[in-house]
Design a protein around this nucleic acid. Structure first.
Lengths: 213, 213
DNA sequence: TAGATTGTTAATCGATTAACAATC
DNA sequence: TAGATTGTTAATCGATTAACAATC
């Protein structure tokens, strides 16, 4: 079971896609699939699929392929989706609200426990049943409520300050939407995942200008 | 100048970060930097930085380093930021509104020409001075207005339909926020960049459960 | 049993890093 | 000129693909 060590980032980045396609197969009542068939759907080579999955154990069966439901459960477990994560959203503007309203996140185990903002016009609003609190309460809230994940949706100038507070309160993960690279102390036991929208848009425009094709 | 061929995706994905750090340096009135100094800021190795930049030309000077403003301009050009892109946003929910309100995009040349939605409660709203139109007008609008980029912010079930319409109307790029992999015909001259938020979140939770550390 | 498909090793390909001559 | 730092080649490292024996 604990074959799980030294998994490369390349593999980890592909796992959510496996998860999504397997869920789709389940919804279509398909209960078995070969690496070749999956390859055609998902766009990775069959060889890569088998390599990827073998990082975690022997999930398949020769001559048969993979049991969809079983594989889905295994990958869910690898992705850490067998527990509930308590999250807070800091910054309740459009992005913060978008995340709070996205039911999928709740469905896979990410529960929004609190939302925080600095803007008096936003404080007090209820977004998907969660009231937006004054950001002054964040420190207390984190200390008391054992929050797992902080979702940073504030402007870039305040992102590091929020990050520091999250680290100080032993949050385990940060999902960062601010367009900065957060500074994390060497010894902090925390994982950061960035969503840099502007970098994504610039990638698009770069590809649009690539003379290739 | 047209050394620009066969640039790997790995390099392209790093360019926006160079762009961001160089802008920051300019804002701080720093006008020259070596690959070593930049390395310390940006977190890529000095060697990699020199390799990356050399894909596009000889931007540096032995014994001196790189001129910040010059390099910034070169990278802006490579990223295709020397022109204005006409964009439309399809789906004016939280995500669509977030993008419409993000002034940075406008600043680097992405101009929102139209927003579209199917929800009568949203149609007619003005988001950052752009009126949300009924999605029935999208086809016409695309045909007439020479739109460069379609930004898909609709739910996953309608994303492919929107995508098809964008392709039919010769849009050159798609920025896709719907959690699906869009099907693009082989012969379509179009570039797609995905922002799959759910995949990003699952990556975070996977890393949080990695026994590594 | 015969056919299918995995798990896994070996080969290939590509990306990153190291090293250093060229040169400002 | 001497020192610094690039541009670029060669070495290393890692990821992907191909191949096939194992086996269901």
């Amino acid at each position: 079971m604990d074959k799980k060590k030294n998994i490369s980032m390349a593999v980890i980045k592909r796992l959510p896609k496996y998860h999504r396609y397997l869920r789709e197969l389940m919804e279509n009542d398909i209960d078995r699939i070969s690496s070749k068939e999956l390859s055609e759907k998902i766009g990775f080579t069959a060889s890569q699929i088998r390599q990827d999955l073998n990082n975690f154990g022997d999930f398949g069966q020769q001559g048969y392929g993979y049991n969809v439901k079983e594989l889905y459960n295994e990958i869910s477990a690898i992705l850490g989706l067998t527990k509930i994560y308590k999250t807070v959203i800091i910054g309740a503007g459009n992005i913060g609200q978008a995340i709070a309203n996205y039911t999928y996140f709740d469905k896979v185990g990410f529960s929004v426990q609190g939302m925080f903002d600095i803007n008096p016009k936003i404080i007090g609003l209820k977004i998907n049943d969660v009231e937006v609190l004054d950001i002054d309460f964040l420190d207390d809230f984190l200390r008391k409520d054992n929050i797992d994940i902080g979702i940073i949706c504030v402007p870039k100038n305040s992102a590091q300050k929020v990050c520091d507070m999250l680290i100080r309160n032993k949050v385990k993960g940060i999902w960062n939407f601010a367009p900065v690279d957060l500074q994390i102390p060497e010894d902090a036991q925390i994982v950061v995942e960035n969503v840099h929208l502007s970098e994504s848009l610039l990638t698009l425009s770069c590809l649009m200008n690539d003379d290739i094709n």
